[in-house]
Nucleic acid binder design. Structure first.
Lengths: 213, 213, 213, 213
DNA sequence: AATGAATGAGACTTCATTCAT
DNA sequence: CATGAATGAAGTCTCATTCAT
């Protein structure tokens, strides 16, 4: 009964009290926004493709921007934090860890989410570049929610000789650069995101952040 | 007499026969597009800020899209190819080369261009994600213009033991991931792009693509 | 409840699902187009005179041209064919016919339609001269829809000695020349189109196409 | 040295002091106006096709309307009157005349002018239907310039039993209906205007206006 | 006389949003 | 909750016209 392309949102618990038509609007908007961009999509088109009256969009989402927010906010405020939390928890639970294991845990398990929600992530990436406000939200979110936790984790992993001595900032940038490269290649440039490719990214990452003897 | 923020375009030789007002439109558009995005900028605003009549935009650039193209096309069709060519020529001219030297030549000398033309590159990145056509142009450009040359260079560098044995595809993705990470961090996330940061990216890159003993 | 100036369109069955405002737009456009010409009429003026928001025009008629088409197409594709059909049927139903009766049936009964829809016919004439596409539609329509039927009728009437031996082409041209002269005089040159004038046209026509003893 | 498509205007004596560029503008405007209509033609296009700067149009013709007037006015105020005068003079010079001779003199000698200046006449017809002012000029012209002379001629011809007893109005309408039918067919509907066709029109006309024994 | 860059009013059109039903 | 007609502000773009060179 669940729409599979909304799984992300079901798990974030934001689809309660949505009617069937409202869910249809959401999935349609995700589809069209990801194909043509938010600014190039009219509410009329969304309504037509979704097979509902245009007024429904505004009844539920207040305005067009509210519809975009309904797509982006849960990713920003729920999916990201809980993913980071889960990842950090994973590291803390494991006692002995190699750099490869660390990277594997970081990369490998997350890419499925990207592939299963590629339309959502396409919108997300696009809007982060396009929209000052969305970008600012991400920038604001980082220090408060992720930064301290990540910092602590990295310090700990440095002590365990799992990460090299580069400044934490540089390590983090290297992490998201390689991850971002894989994801952007997949979402926007028709590159594969299969296990071999992911492994290749992993290898590069391990070399870049692994302590040298 | 040259407007410094258009240096890129002067060198590409695309500003011949531009009047002072037309140059003002171009610089203004670059500024506002980079700040608010193409879709969120009206031609009226450009004209007002540039201090010209709106009609001038259409007299010279045909339509709003033509103005965006005047900004993007030279980067795509002139700056990029000539940069790649210059880079490749650099490698061929040097006999003995370490991985670090290779990466240095790749990264270090290019970042100035990004910093000096940050508004243009911001537009460029944004539109690559936002606009299917621009992205497709880039995708089309790659195989024809860059791919073969890069491939040959990488093969040669592998023989010289300057690059490791990863598939060329993976090496290239690693290169632009790390470079893209630096640039995106600088352009969109207020990260520094000073020599220390570039060096740090260089180090990560060297580790990732250097042959292991 | 019917607007009398739209009777033509009601009978053509093209006004279903029109709201009151949309009908007002149509009648207003007919009025102003006929007075000032399509190109000299702005959608803003139509909306103002009709007392509706300008957007309504585009919501219903897609664009300004769509509004003109909504006026012209039914005349071209419905009123004309059905009028011709009715006329031909009339001839076939009558056994013995004089040239005068034939001309009477042709002319007399049709002029009321012109007078009752003079604004529409003014637009129609004007656009046939002004607009290549409209004219082409009329040219295309003729061979397929009218020509064969008219030809057959004329051949039959020649056998019955109601028409003289001029080539069918010439007879048809004479018919529409005299009819067109009456109509154009009425619509554009303030000439009367009363029974005396019509009779006079009839007389000329009868003389021109009647077999001589 | 004369441009043949401007012969009409040379004879009307209105091309004195025209430079080569101004003549080119005039011929170009005649061509494009006749193809696309006055309203659908921009001064920019005329200038481009004529190979001159746009400003020249306004330097000579004051404004766009002035260019149209330069095409239409001579026809209205010189070609028409002198044609009518010449025609009337022809009749007065001939003593014994049949209806056929009269019609022949009326029709046959005038159609060459239409064929040799088809673009000008196309504009003329189109604007008479499209433009209230042009039409009004024609309406105003008729009583003052043509009407009395034509009336007198017709009265005279009635006495000579060359025309039947229809009201002069009806005779005139029949004349221009048949003539107009030939011309409109030729200019707008790809109909021939060869001698056979003209003869056929003549025959119809003679029958319609000839006194019956 | 000739040029064409510059102007800006006004055209058509889109579109998010409201609201009566 | 659902509909879609109606709105009107705001957008892009055209074009006749001016004017300094």
């Amino acid at each position: 009964m669940h729409k599979p392309e909304l799984e992300l949102y079901y798990q974030a618990g934001v689809l309660d009290h949505f009617t069937e038509k409202q869910l249809k609007i959401l999935t349609t908007a995700i589809q069209i926004f990801s194909e043509k961009g938010y600014e190039n999509t009219s509410t009329k088109e969304i309504a037509e493709v979704a097979g509902v009256a245009e007024g429904n969009i505004f009844a539920k989402f207040k305005n067009k921007r509210g519809l975009l927010n309904a797509i982006i906010e849960p990713v920003l405020n729920r999916v990201f934090p809980s993913t980071i939390d889960a990842f950090i928890q994973e590291q803390l639970d494991k006692e002995y860890l190699s750099t490869a294991e660390f990277v594997d845990s970081l990369l490998f398990n997350r890419m499925d989410m990207v592939k299963e929600n590629s339309a959502v992530f396409k919108i997300f990436f696009t809007e982060i570049f396009y929209d000052h406000d969305v970008r600012q939200e991400l920038i604001d979110l980082f220090p408060n929610v992720y930064w301290q936790k990540l910092n602590n984790l990295i310090d700990e992993l440095k002590q365990k000789h799992i990460l090299n001595g580069l400044p934490n900032n540089d390590i983090i940038r290297t992490l998201w650069s390689i991850m971002g490269g894989l994801v952007v290649g997949y979402l926007f440039f028709n590159q594969p995101l299969d296990q071999r490719t992911i492994n290749s990214g992993m290898t590069a990452l391990v070399e870049a952040i692994e302590p040298k003897p």
